[in-house]
């Protein structure tokens, strides 16, 4: 049976400032969704709230995965239920090699007994190495990656590829990609997009959160949702992405009686063509 991430009437605030204001969204295993919105619409807030970042406060609403309520669960318990977040800005952990970290993480999410206080039993080194090597080969990641310190001194592109490698190793049921294309040049977007494509299949549901449609050239979603002012205001198919490509967010804003808000501080990038 396929697992579903269900978000119902979700309200999230940051430092008493409401950001997400009644959001509804369902993502099933095997489906690809794109949530598109301009700066300040609440994209990253949603991604962080879903994963349980303590900085974000859930005021009301529901988040469940496979019917299990996530709201009271710590981030690690959510990960063990099959939720994954590819971070927009992955944090560096100096002194911890990618391989050691991944072995611990993979062992943790696969442990049968998800009792938080138990010490994780590590999966055997040989088995882990074999699997890591295979996944690195599949994604075209250099083997030296395994020995480097996690995200420490990584270029923007390397960080995003490291996130995709983690996604591949952890084999979640539902993955959220938070602005995975941001800060990358067009070649890097292609490489990351193709890597994610490698992982797509009936066991993985993906929620791509993005400002620009360019990543969608490589990962074609079945469902597109438009996020404005903390709510999903439109849902549909590929035609919505094309509409954005041609006209931007303004017509949708006007249709919903919203004015432009600019909150987040993000570099302005040229909108690359969907048909490039």
């Amino acid at each position: 049976m396929s697992t579903e991430l269900v978000i119902k009437d979700l309200h999230v605030s940051v430092e008493d400032q409401p950001i997400i204001k009644g959001l509804n969204l369902n993502v099933k295993q095997g489906e690809i969704h794109a949530l598109m919105g301009p700066n300040g619409s609440g994209k990253s807030t949603l991604a962080n709230a879903l994963m349980g970042n303590p900085f974000y406060t859930i005021d009301s609403g529901e988040i469940t995965i496979g019917g299990v309520d996530l709201l009271e669960l710590e981030p690690d318990e959510r990960a063990k239920l099959g939720l994954f977040l590819a971070f927009q800005y992955p944090t560096a952990i100096p002194g911890v090699t990618m391989a050691n970290f991944l072995r611990m993480a993979v062992s943790a999410v696969r442990s049968e007994d998800s009792n938080g206080s138990e010490t994780t039993e590590l999966i055997p080194m040989r088995e882990f190495r074999r699997e890591l090597r295979a996944k690195m080969r599949q994604l075209g990641v250099d083997e030296s990656f395994a020995r480097r310190y996690l995200n420490d001194g990584f270029s923007g592109g390397e960080k995003k590829r490291a996130e995709v490698l983690q996604l591949a190793m952890l084999e979640p049921k539902i993955a959220i990609l938070d602005e995975t294309d941001s800060g990358l040049d067009i070649d890097a977007v292609r490489i990351v997009g193709e890597s994610v494509n490698q992982l797509i299949g009936p066991n993985l549901g993906v929620l791509i959160i993005t400002h620009y449609p360019r990543l969608l050239n490589y990962i074609r979603p079945q469902f597109i949702h438009i996020l404005l002012d903390g709510k999903v205001v439109e849902s549909g198919g590929w035609e919505l992405a094309e509409l954005l490509e041609d006209k931007g967010y303004d017509p949708i804003r006007e249709a919903h009686g919203l004015t432009e808000t600019v909150v987040e501080d993000e570099p302005e990038e040229a909108l690359p063509s969907l048909r490039a």
Partner: peptide
């Protein structure tokens, strides 16, 4: 120990204690 580092490691399935231990071990690794 940064909240961000803890959140990042915990989002990968590590408990808070495992995450802090990993950060400390990384700190003295050199």
């Amino acid at each position: 120990i940064g909240e961000e580092q803890l959140f990042y490691l915990m989002s990968r399935g590590l408990s808070e204690e495992e995450a802090s231990t990993m950060i400390v071990n990384g700190f003295i690794e050199p």
